[in-house]
């Protein structure tokens, strides 16, 4: 008999025990180890994924920031360029204005200089003419200039044309105050008498006169009453001289002014 039933039972029992032993000592530890490793790997992969995602997110964020920074940078640069352009324009305008002002001032100064020169020339000419005239008159007629002036004034009074004479006479008559005779210097008594006589003769009446000294008259004599005036002075001659000198200086000024107001080329 090939089958021994006791052995069959014993082997069945043995096999069941072996199954339990294998489960206990082989499969469970191995499956546990496999599961633990799988879990470990899965965790690590998940971590890696998370880290990668994090890295990706940070990279995106960085790129975004970089982009924003670039845009900001470009905007700032553009703004700075615009501001610089505006500032440059402003500075150029200021410089141009300053140059214009300077030029204007220079012209003004030149004009002042010319005016001063004119005055100096006028004064000098006046003094010279006065001195020459005084000398000539002294030398020639042995009379003082003042005498001659008095005579000249008297002469002019007498030679006045009819209309002017009538107007003046009317004014002198209607005026209650004495007529005012102003001279650049104190008239001596003779002169005063000569003028008084000339007035009396000219207007055929007793004219009351008040004498006054006015240095601005420049070697001259002037009769004024009720708004009307008769005068003789070297200032008349000097005025024509002054006019001539003024025209001469103006002619000199023009080319200088033109040269000053040339516009400056803007620098880029």
């Amino acid at each position: 008999m090939l089958i021994d039933w006791f052995t069959v039972g014993a082997q069945t029992l043995n096999f069941i025990i072996l199954v339990w032993l294998m489960k206990r000592f082989l499969y469970q530890p191995i499956l546990h180890a496999l599961d633990a490793r799988e879990k470990h790997i899965a965790t690590e992969l998940a971590n890696a994924d998370a880290k990668q995602a994090e890295a990706q997110r940070e990279r995106d964020e960085f790129q975004q920031k970089n982009k924003e920074f670039d845009q900001q940078h470009a905007a700032l640069l553009r703004q700075a360029t615009d501001e610089a352009k505006v500032e440059r324009q402003r500075l150029l305008d200021e410089a141009r204005k300053a140059a214009d002002d300077l030029s204007a001032k220079r012209q003004e100064r030149l004009r002042n200089d010319a005016r001063n020169l004119n005055q100096v020339i006028s004064l000098r000419a006046q003094q010279e003419v006065f001195a020459i005239a005084r000398k000539v008159l002294t030398d020639l007629a042995t009379t003082s200039l003042e005498e001659r002036m008095g005579e000249m004034f008297a002469h002019r009074l007498q030679e006045m044309d009819g209309e002017a004479k009538a107007g003046l006479a009317e004014a002198l008559k209607t005026k209650s105050d004495p007529a005012l005779v102003r001279s650049a210097f104190d008239l001596p008594a003779e002169q005063r008498a000569t003028i008084q006589n000339a007035l009396n003769e000219t207007f055929s009446a007793e004219i009351r006169v008040r004498f006054e000294t006015a240095p601005k008259l420049i070697s001259g004599i002037e009769l004024s009453t009720n708004g009307l005036k008769v005068a003789w002075s070297i200032a008349d001659y000097l005025a024509s001289l002054e006019k001539g000198v003024g025209e001469l200086l103006q002619e000199k000024d023009i080319p200088v002014t033109k040269a000053d107001t040339q516009p400056e080329e803007p620098q880029s």
């Binding site: 032993l21 294998m22 000592f25 530890p29 191995i30 180890a33 633990a36 490793r37 470990h40 790997i41």
Partner: peptide, 20 residues
Amino acid sequence: LMFVLTVGAKLITRNFSTGL
């Protein structure tokens, strides 16, 4: 055989590592 298998299994799984 049971003894060999059990002892072998025990020996092999004695220092099982769950790491990599």
